[in-house]
Nucleic acid binder design. Structure first.
Lengths: 226, 226
DNA sequence: TAGATTGTTAATCGATTAACAATC
DNA sequence: TAGATTGTTAATCGATTAACAATC
């Protein structure tokens, strides 16, 4: 089965199914129907059945899907039946929050390396991490054979860091920098820019400008986007 | 023009166009073609022209789109030609990072209220923010007439907080809690769960489990998902 | 004029939904 | 058996792309 035969939109939903099945398991459920899974996610039951049927027949008529077995299958399909080491670049406020975030370890991801270019930060410990000099990025990533990277640098540094990560063997990047990265097509990239999500909502909100401080907006023709 | 006549997938791209145009403006460009904008975003030129044509005719044959004017138009369309106040609930490591994040203010968003339920945090200052008791959430949000909320609480608290935000007048929620919220359909919700993004990438990575610590995985049948 | 680029149409492509036989 | 639910097909729906006349 070639992963590229699976529509990306289907791949995008699989982690949501897995996450929701985990909650169901914690509630003590041993079986879950496509209807109930869909209700919990705001997705149609038909869509869930169609998505899952691309990978096999996991359910049973009359009863639904066995929770534990489907979790195992989804973890296998998503390759999260193992622990993934990650490299983090940029230990500002956001990078620090990522270092402290328990949700990664709980779900099979581990920050193995953390880099910054600030001499005041290099060598310091944050939690159990020692911040390393970003100058040694390639060397350290190659040495640890790491395939996943996270970028929490200013936008101005992101492209260069991404290219160096890829040089060092990284194949997937989660970038918090508000800029689109130019990388070879075989490299997987996902982006998290909270302002993009906010603007997708304000499009629908409209209404009275509560706080349209024209002076403030004048000094912010666009946003500096460091 | 009814916003719901615009396909959501088009709305999703508009903020990306705006962000990229802002960078182009900072580079000193006064004009940008759909081809160049698409190149910078990994989107086809035809798609960009089609998206923008839903809102008007902004370009000029032979030269492309005037950067400054299109930025103004997109800001108007997305309703970010004003400052939006937001309420933040949950001031752990992530909430703190959000409080310090300069990118909100630079792009027209401002955290006006920050709440937590931890007595040790309530009343304390973080940067210029005073953490308020989440018990006063409805009152404070109504008083400030706030329409946007951000949730950075554990998943277990997110649903209740979301409902209370909506009661208080919030119409759009950006949630960092790894759970799907059940809310009335007119409420806009966007989710940021970094593990979901990582799993969308590991699906394609596969390869040798570098670090498949079976013992670790045994203690983590799914992830506790606090 | 010549080259470039828009806005728009029609064609293609892909995703979602409705429906139902199979079966637990 | 009766009720519920899957896996799958066909139909519908929506999004993307290719192409080009218009025009700067």
């Amino acid at each position: 089965m070639n992963p590229h035969d699976i529509p990306p939109v289907v791949v995008g939903r699989l982690p949501l199914y897995l996450r929701t099945l985990c909650y169901a398991q914690q509630e003590g459920l041993t079986t879950l129907s496509s209807h109930e899974l869909g209700r919990r996610l705001g997705i149609s039951a038909a869509q869930i059945r169609k998505d899952l049927s691309m990978f096999g027949e996991f359910g049973k008529q009359g009863t639904g899907y066995p929770v534990a077995a489907l979790i195992r299958q989804l973890r296998r399909i998503l390759h999260v039946d193992r622990v993934w080491d990650m490299a983090l670049v940029g230990v500002g406020a956001l990078g620090r929050a990522l270092l402290y975030y328990q949700g990664f370890a709980k779900r099979g991801f581990r920050i193995a390396l953390a880099f910054d270019n600030d001499p005041h930060k290099i060598g310091r410990r944050i939690g159990s991490f020692v911040i390393q000099d970003v100058a040694r990025l390639e060397e350290a990533i190659r040495g640890a054979d790491i395939r996943l990277g996270m970028i929490a640098t200013p936008a101005s540094a992101a492209q260069e860091i991404a290219e160096r990560m890829v040089d060092a063997g990284v194949r997937g990047i989660l970038s918090y920098a508000p800029i689109h990265l130019q990388l070879p097509p075989e490299i997987k990239v996902e982006y998290i820019d909270p302002v993009i999500y906010l603007q997708r909502m304000t499009f629908y909100l409209g209404g009275q400008p509560k706080d349209d401080d024209e002076a403030l907006l004048a000094t912010m023709p666009c946003g500096e986007h460091d």
